[in-house]
Write a protein that binds this DNA or RNA. Sequence first.
RNA 1: GGAGACGUGGCCGAGCGGCUGAAGGCGACGGUUUGCUAAACCGUUAUACGGGUUAUACCGUAUCGAGGGUUCGAAUCCCUCCGUCUCCUCCA
Length: 442
Amino acid sequence: MHDIHLIRAKPDLFDAGWARRGLPPIAKMLLALDDHRRAAITRVGELQATRNRLSAEVGQLKRNGGDAEPLMAQVAALKEELAEREQDSKQADEALVKALEVLPTLPAAEVPDGEDEEANLEIRKWGSPRSFDFTPQLHEVLAPKLGGMDFETAAKVAGSRFTYLKGGVARLHRALAQFMLDLHSGEFGYTEVDVPLLVRDQALYGTGQLPKFSEDMFRTTDDRWLIPTAEVSLTAMVMDSIMDQRELPMRLTAGSYCFRSEIGAAGRDTTGFIRQHQFFKVELVSITKPEDSEAEHERMTTCAEEVLKRLELPYRVMLLCAGDMGFSARKTYDLEVWLPGQNRYREISSCSNCGDFQARRMRARYRRGDTSTTKSSWRIGESLLDLSSDSPEPVHTLNGSGVAVGRALIAVLENYQQADGSVAIPTVLQPYMGGLKAITLA
RNA sequence: GGAGACGUGGCCGAGCGGCUGAAGGCGACGGUUUGCUAAACCGUUAUACGGGUUAUACCGUAUCGAGGGUUCGAAUCCCUCCGUCUCCUCCA
């Protein structure tokens, strides 16, 4: 959610940013709504001030035994107009919020222009695709042969875009998640969290999925939602709170199932394990001070990359263009892993800096409280302008997959497949597989 | 599912329809004292919006879970909703 004060100050900047996301100029309309709103607020304030003043006089008179009747009549007369004006004010405010809440955040300056993934920039590449002396198979072909994936039964039981994982493949899936969580919590300072998979509207509003993207999610009969990503549950932990700067950065990780309706993806990736209604993902979330979020974004991305490095999976890092980014993101790196079966890179992680966009929506703030003795005494004779005020300001939020476990499973299966149809286990996962070195045909 | 209790500031916790943006405490911050630390003492310490200012100051309004209502006037009375907790029941 954007700050109307900023839009008021720099309307052109906002229109320019939205234009990069393919939106028409809208600042002028927003400012008109804002003018209307402010006029209404002012009028209500005036009427209320009058009412309060007169009512106080009534109290005074009554205590002194005077005749308050005429004043009381006067206040009563005010009430009708006040009620009308309050209605105006409320409607004007709602109109502005309704216009603002569906507007995406502005792309960061260094984000390239472009409408879709064609314009994304490759930032770096790690590893090189292995050369096969046989034709590498798609995971959806090789895994069923290992007895590890069953699409037909899942379709019968649950419908399309569901899969049974079995035996060594199911264990490999679990091992991957375990390994990732251990890495992030053990080496990178993330606190492991087990999160709610069902959440309320307000959590999804805060992260930006609502009100605009309700179609992409599953709703429960008791009006909750299945989370489309643990980003929601993790980020919303700081909703409606004021943190002390010493609590920042806050680094959280969670392994969770994610649920997506994939309504907008009809016809895409209809076979295999790539695009499921339900998939497992290890998520990273950081809550930082504004000045730290850019560095944290880089750090988070390298944390996700480290997963792929240790699994020895070739990947590349893409900087998404303005048109390809999500609603709440001001800058996003995608990690794309090499899939030999498809003979191309596919997204396996997405790391985004959301700036203060989500924080504003969920009122997640922190208090700088940075008036240390040295600092303030140094500045006492100077302009007070530089003294940071102690009023709460929005934090910055970041989220990234570290990484998508379902897709990591596919990547391991395809990259580690052998000529005989078996799949080797990456060294780093072997401890999680009871020392097993390969998944072989039954 | 049955019965009941409760939602007040960063936190804890008072609160009689007007003198309550809200006692008191904790915490935090500033200062005094002090060889340092600690302690003690004094003071400051909500948020949002609107107006105003170069910027401060300052002024106004709202906010005691949310939304309605009663009233000249509501944290306080009434209604609805939401949430939390306890006991019983049930259950992984």
